[in-house]
Design a protein around this nucleic acid. Structure first.
Lengths: 349, 349
DNA sequence: GTTAGCACTCATTTTTATTGAGTGCTAATT
DNA sequence: AATTAGCACTCAATAAAAATGAGTGCTAAC
């Protein structure tokens, strides 16, 4: 069967109506809509076709229709490819400067949740080509030395290292020099066992301590170790009856809490967005129901967008809501926030 | 009216039964309990008295009774003052060493939630007498300087400071010396405007940068700025029907998310525990329903305990659950974890 | 190809009955 | 004087029955 313009219009009307009300949509409701001057009976025939084609479903005989995942997908694809309307009267979002990245991201997730009324999730940026930029050991007190490690993208990692015997300033200086000359500018792959042994040798009696430092360096560079997830607006799911029975709500909320579930989503979404970057969709991905890599989100839709800070630090933000979420608004909001982060970063620079 | 032994027994029986079932308890149920050899009618009379005294409530005429907040309070007070039974077959909890405090606390909250099946919340420690221990500026690249600030208790704070013109190593060394000689060992109150002006003067053309550094120091020392809250097990509330209607669940979950709500709870609980430290209750506080400083917790009970790391760093952990929570188990679990943290810290030292 | 008409379906709502746990009170018993 | 048996009564919860109404599919007329 072929999709024609009237079918498209009817499908769109069904979906739009369902997005608003969350209730199955009947033929009469649609016939009353202006623009489409046909009787309910005709609509019924078309609906019957649409159902056969898999775009809509009947929860039970003699109820109205609701969109299937395929129906949503059709709608979302059409919407996304449309020329973007000017960013309408969207709530102004102001990301305040925060000097800690974590604060900033927490703020972003809150902002997303508040302006969409869905749940939001923001990941810390994953650094791709991260090289060591700077190491510094400092003597903090008689039996502890602090190692500060800065990697590209100005990610900072601290590690307090206990020492048996007090170390004098001179030695610290020497060790600093040793570490910096050998390690600066290197990536994880370049720091191999040979190099480590060499450095340890040169460190003499302090080789053990240097071992700890190098471990910390490795940890700092390895990106996924530091992947943090910020969530907000979990309680928003209670706004949508179809998600708020105990079973589902509990599942969604624990997923939001079990932040590690998002790693998969993140890596998949990052790569998929890379793939179709040419299609110029502002790097926004929509997962409807079972399309989502997170199985417990089968009753939700997940919309993800990437953001990019300096030096290729890419992170992800997503909105989690019912399948009948306002995709248009969500996409706009994400786009807005992408830009916001962009300009914020530029200002900072 | 007076409380006698039989009334106490009956009250206790009502509460225990209600804790298990969550259903109102009737006179026949209690009469069938061994140990109390009286007829349901007698129980009814006693129950009538207990109700008059405010220990129990009838949800509606001709239903069984449920404990009132006052009833729970009676029960909890009795339980807490009993000689503590040996820590029975409690699930072994192992706090793995984590080198980041935040990881550790997140882990603790998860552990609490998992072993009690309630929601858990852990605060980062609040430092009381925090003095500056160590400052270090380092040149990271041509236009940024990294300030590392260590306060007592080995809390580390990093701040990246952009600079207009490149600074040479010598100047950095001088500034480091300047800062350390003037600021080390001082607490927030001791760093006054006069001192700041003095330092800025000495810093000459770098006074502006030094200003940023001192701001960061102030921020690092001010404890409440850094108060972080870790939560876990929010979804556990769905285990308890009396909390899982949408209204209540949503309220509780957003409270868990709005972490700032806990500040009040924390400060109050810390001081109250200080007050009655002599009464030897292991610093465990129970807030039943409206007793809680957090208004949205009126349908829950909140049990809090403090923990203490080195140098008087005190933090709080709490369990949030239904009023009919297993207070005994919760108290034991908290106690266990207090000890665990204690030994962990000692090992570390 | 479109529409009016109609019988039919079925979730939802409303109504009515039924059940049963639990009470309070009174009068008998210990 | 305290305890208990007995009984009428209350009321949430469950079940069963009836009414409602939105919506469908199909057929026949336009």
């Amino acid at each position: 069967m072929e999709m024609n313009e009237r079918k498209t219009k009817i499908l769109e009307a069904i979906i739009k109506n369902y997005l608003e009300t969350g209730e199955p949509v009947g033929s009469r409701t649609i016939s009353k809509l202006e623009g489409l001057k046909v009787s309910p009976a005709t609509i019924r025939n078309e609906m019957s076709d649409l159902e056969e084609m898999g775009y809509i479903l009947q929860p039970h005989t003699s109820s109205g229709r609701i969109p299937s995942d395929k129906g949503y997908r059709f709608y979302v694809d059409r919407m996304m490819s449309e020329k973007e309307k000017e960013v309408s009267d969207m709530k102004d979002m102001v990301v305040q400067k925060a000097d800690q990245l974590s604060e900033l991201l927490q703020q972003v997730s809150k902002l997303l949740a508040e302006s969409t009324n869905y749940a939001a999730m923001v990941s810390s940026p994953q650094i791709h080509h991260n090289k060591l930029k700077f190491i510094q050991l400092s003597k903090v007190d008689a039996n502890s030395v602090l190692a500060v490690i800065v990697v590209e993208g100005n990610i900072i990692k601290n590690k307090m290292i206990p020492v048996e015997e007090e170390i004098d300033q001179d030695t610290i200086l020497k060790l600093n020099l040793l570490l910096n000359t050998h390690l600066n500018g290197l990536s994880l792959e370049e720091i191999n066992l040979g190099l480590i042994t060499l450095i340890k040798e040169r460190a003499g009696i302090h080789s053990e301590m240097i071992g700890s430092v190098i471990d910390a360096v490795a940890e700092a560079i390895r990106a996924d170790e530091d992947l943090e997830i910020y969530t907000s607006g979990a309680n928003n799911i209670f706004r949508y009856p179809e998600l708020s029975d105990n079973q589902k709500a509990s599942e969604i909320i624990s997923t939001l809490e079990e932040k590690n579930q998002f790693e998969e989503l993140m890596s998949r979404s990052l790569s998929e967005i890379d793939d179709k970057l040419d299609s110029e969709q502002h790097g926004i991905q929509v997962y409807i129901g079972n399309e989502s890599p997170i199985k417990s989100m089968k009753d939700c839709s997940v919309v993800t967008a990437t953001y990019e800070l300096e030096d290729g630090m890419k992170g992800m933000m997503s909105i989690i809501g019912p399948k009948r979420m306002d995709y248009e608004k969500v996409a706009k909001t994400l786009k807005k926030l992408q830009e916001e982060l962009d300009t914020l970063y530029k200002k900072k620079k």
